[in-house]
Amino acid sequence: MLTLKKLVLLLLIGVVSLTSVFGATLTVGAKNFTEQYVLGNLASLLLEENGFQIVERFGLSSLVARQALLTGQIDLYADYTGTAWVTYLDQEELIADPDELLQKVRELDAENEIVWLDRINANNTYALAIRREDHEKYGFENLSDLVAYWNEHPKEFVVGVGYEFYERPDGFFAFAEHYGLNIPNSQVSTMDDGLTYEALANKKIDIAMVFATDPKILRYNLYVLEDDLNFWPYYHISYAVREDVLNKYPEIEEILRPLTLYLNQDVLIRLNYRVDIEGLEPKIVARDYLEGLGLID
């Protein structure tokens, strides 16, 4: 909790304002998978520690979360630069530098009165994975290797993908077109995102859509194929905030800055691991992490 001594110190150095301390309410959003619940809780706990009242709207799809931000139903949430660039802003240019991508997202989304804070050094890009035993059997190192074989044996493999990945413009069929993959729809199985790992490990499918920061890759000993033709953009994490909210409470940026400084790919995988593999609640994992850094009491 925010002690009186800490409150006075934060007021003096300008990290919090009197407005935020006395009753200001923020609505924090999160999408509907583990990493997002962790990121949502990290933001909520930090903001709450610094005087804000928090309403949480977690478990949203990408497009619902985005629309909620645009319409003011949520004030901020963690999102991904690649998702914004391709899905929200409808851009096709491939940008190979993550900082340039963030800057361009910022510039375009400013027209929507959305501010993207500094990025976290974790790239949760999409990827395709196979069982390590199949990597050794077929010798696939990258997606081009897989596609070359797959086109010659179109019914040999079944791929499992999440529902959103099946439909989104940077999803499976856009990947297939980019790589020149021709397979029947009957070889594509849709399921909840988290189930693709188990389905692959249990040999119900042969190829799985995965996320690069998901600890189940380690748990199930999967092999992630290199995106050698650079189809997927960077999906670095940044908190997107409504401009009017940030103008009213500019201290939000400083309150959340430690997440930019301390979170990275390895840390995020460990936090996700504690939820998905060890079975802890995301709020407990987030709280333990922030307490360990001395950011909350």
Score class of each variant (00 low, 15 high):
Y239T: 05
D134Y: 01
V224S: 05
F231K: 13
Q91V: 01
D109Q: 06
V115L: 04
D288I: 02
A30M: 10
F172S: 12
I277W: 01
G294I: 09
L271R: 02
L9K: 15
A174G: 12
G29E: 10
T25E: 15
G180A: 03
E92Y: 10
D297H: 05
N50E: 10
E253D: 06
G29M: 09
Y163G: 08
L128R: 02
Q53R: 11
I130N: 04
Y37T: 05
D228I: 01
L9H: 12
D79I: 13
I269S: 09
R66W: 15
L293C: 04
L47F: 02
D192W: 00
E152D: 06
N221S: 05
D244A: 10
P233T: 13
I269V: 15
S189Q: 13
T71S: 14
R287W: 05
G294M: 03
Y179P: 09
R219P: 00
L268E: 10
K137D: 09
R119N: 09
D134N: 15
D145I: 01
H153E: 04
P169F: 03
L69M: 10
E107G: 04
H135E: 14
L94Y: 15
K5Y: 06
E254L: 06
F211G: 12
G294R: 09
Y77E: 14
E111A: 08
I13V: 08
T196H: 04
D90Q: 15
Y220F: 13
N247P: 00
F172D: 06
N112G: 01
I120S: 02
Y37D: 06
I255T: 11
L181M: 15
A127I: 04
E92C: 02
L146Y: 02
Y179K: 07
E164N: 08
L10T: 01
T27V: 15
